[in-house]
């Protein structure tokens, strides 16, 4: 290991280091600078529909407006509920299915392929499929099953908007959880299982004392990455409920869109954007701590 380290050092020719700069500069221009401008805008009173009022510095007024409005807390609650519920559903289903897949059976490759397909479908189309095929109160599956069970069909999207979206997003992300947990199960060394069997552990004991500890880092990775993506759900909401009724199915990302591109209130939309980023950064710090630990394992 030490030897490789030294060799890496010897071939450290200066021109190669510059290879990082183009990407870094590009990312700064595309992401960091816009975010700094968002912070700046969040202190301005600026509505594109009222050009006569111009752009006026208002200090923390935008934040005060947001944090004193009840709709913001509803949206915040929706974001937390949507993200948590999807993570729990995806984890449980994904884990169960990874266990089923972690056996040898005929057609395993094809089953895996068709199972991950929902993950590749664009969110707008997923939303359309569910909105028509599943949730349509006249012709959808939900009404069909309602008839079968002798109940009156309901309009899922207006009766349970957030739940409907949770189901769509869970459908799309369960394959992601399954894939990564399956990779974890398959990387379990056979010796570990054998050793546990020699110790006289039964199936359940093996699962709790060998499989779960081994899977731990995979579980962490899948939960944190899933969290980062699911926090940003947008297209599914846009197509199915447009965030309504009222704010019943709006999350933070969609709130920025509503304030920014429907009310054209640049200042307030930016302020919500800043709050969204703060929430995300807190989550991201957890993720980095985890990844750093993995780095150290990789290098040792």
């Amino acid at each position: 290991m030490q030897a490789t380290e030294n060799k890496k050092r010897t071939s450290n020719q200066p021109p190669v280091k510059r290879l990082i700069w183009p990407s870094a500069i590009y990312l700064i221009i595309m992401t960091q600078i816009p975010f700094l401008i968002t912070i700046y805008y969040s202190f301005q009173d600026w509505n594109l529909m009222r050009p006569d009022q111009g752009v006026v510095f208002t200090g923390l007024a935008n934040f005060k407006n947001i944090l004193t409005s009840s709709s913001f807390y509803q949206v915040f609650g929706n974001t937390v509920l949507l993200t948590t519920a999807v993570l729990v559903i995806c984890f449980l289903l994904g884990f169960a299915f990874a266990l089923l897949m972690n056996r040898n059976f005929f057609g395993k490759g094809i089953v895996r392929t068709i199972f991950i397909t929902p993950f590749f479908v664009m969110p707008t189309v997923s939303a359309i499929v569910w909105k028509t095929l599943m949730y349509n109160p006249n012709f959808g599956m939900s009404s069909y099953f309602a008839h079968v069970f002798g109940k009156a069909p309901i309009d899922w999207l207006s009766a349970h908007p957030l739940l409907s979206i949770i189901l769509i997003v869970s459908w799309m992300w369960t394959p992601f959880f399954m894939l990564i947990l399956l990779a974890g199960l398959q990387s379990l060394p056979a010796e570990l299982i054998e050793a546990a069997q020699l110790d006289g552990a039964n199936k359940m004991g093996q699962f709790i004392h060998v499989t779960i500890p081994h899977l731990f880092r995979y579980i962490e990775v899948v939960l944190l990455l899933g969290l980062m993506f699911i926090l940003q759900v947008f297209g599914e909401i846009y197509v199915t409920t447009a965030g309504g009724p009222g704010y019943a199915s709006t999350n933070l990302s969609f709130l920025v869109y509503r304030i920014g591109f429907q009310n054209w209130d640049i200042g307030e939309a930016s302020a919500v954007g800043v709050l969204t980023v703060i929430l995300t950064i807190i989550m991201m710090l957890f993720m980095f701590r985890l990844l750093r630990r993995m780095f150290r394992e990789e290098q040792s």
């Binding site: 990312l27 992401t31 816009p34 975010f35 980023v277 991201m284």
Partner: peptide
């Protein structure tokens, strides 16, 4: 971190 910066935080500018 730039990948996970929410689009909501940069879309307005």
């Amino acid at each position: 971190s730039t990948r996970f910066l929410p689009i909501a935080g940069i879309i307005i500018p």
